[in-house]
């Protein structure tokens, strides 16, 4: 395999199960490159995932890894971070896992501003189970459960997490892989809750039904639909329909949960020892 990545992977688990052209490997490699750049130790880093195609990623990564239940990765990650605030905790999730099954946990992890980096692989579909539409499937797109087109409005997950109180929020795409890697690096480095939505391609279950049959078609779609956040500010909602706004949306220095909790314990240390 690529020798620049090999030390961070469980090579005997490769090739991975993802379909030809699936973008999940591009995002996974981007995460590893960001960690390499930051110089994080494998033993000090924990990957936690839920269920879905993207959540298979930690299985290939040679770190401390936890593959948990659907939508609940952030719950397990919160437990790890509270017990061991010294560890780097990273959650890998998908659009369905994060926004539908685990939406409630996402909101509250952001609200607490706990120092966890969540990377949401957004492939716009439930790929593993056969292409059902997710809350992030574009309106009018076709899915196995929406043969005449999806009538739901699409969730803007970055705006949700921003409103819930996260310290860091960004979106990138697998086409724009260098900026994506930098956004992930900055999110990992941020003290507080970081959320990076990585727009990734599912050519098999999303692309084929939506006139993008190949991985190349899907990357060209990402290229053409992407609008930098600096330019999007001057565009009205009509102009932004169908676009993917990329870049950094939120970068705040605000109180982090485990630090606040530690302070509370110290303030009441005498109360506790006196009991």
């Amino acid at each position: 395999m690529n020798e620049n990545l090999a030390e961070y992977f469980r090579g005997d688990h490769l090739p991975h199960i993802w379909c030809p052209g699936c973008g999940n490997g591009i995002v996974t490699a981007a995460i590893v490159r960001a960690i390499k750049e930051l110089g994080w130790e494998k033993d000090d880093t924990v990957f936690v995932s839920g269920i879905g195609c993207s959540s298979r990623a930690p299985g290939y990564l040679d770190f401390n890894t936890l593959h948990t239940t659907h939508g609940r990765a952030l719950v397990f990650a919160t437990g790890i971070k509270v017990a061991r605030p010294d560890l780097n905790v990273v959650v890998i999730t998908g659009d369905g896992d994060a926004s539908a099954i685990g939406g409630n946990h996402l909101i509250h992890a952001a609200r607490r501003n706990i120092d966890i980096t969540t990377i949401c692989f957004n492939n716009n579909i439930y790929g593993m189970t056969g292409g059902q539409y997710s809350p992030l499937s574009p309106t009018h797109s076709l899915a196995s459960t929406a043969p005449y087109g999806n009538t739901d409005r699409t969730f803007d997950l970055c705006r949700l997490v921003e409103a819930a109180g996260a310290a860091y929020v960004s979106r990138g795409t697998t086409y724009h892989v260098v900026p994506l890697t930098n956004l992930i690096r900055d999110g990992l480095n941020k003290r507080g809750f970081s959320f990076i939505e990585a727009v990734t391609a599912c050519p098999v279950y999303f692309g084929r039904r939506n006139k993008m049959r190949t991985a190349v078609d899907m990357l060209n779609w990402q290229k053409e639909a992407a609008v930098p956040v600096s330019r999007a500010k001057d565009m009205d909602p009509g102009e932004l329909a169908g676009k993917i706004v990329i870049g950094n949306f939120v970068d705040l220095d605000i109180p982090e949960y485990t630090e606040s909790y530690e302070r509370l314990l110290k303030e009441h240390a005498s109360d506790r020892s006196g009991s």
Partner: peptide, 13 residues
């Protein structure tokens, strides 16, 4: 390095 960075299968260096 765009081939390497965009390879989904860690196959290109």
């Amino acid at each position: 390095r765009m081939c390497e960075l965009r390879c989904p299968d860690f196959a290109v260096m």
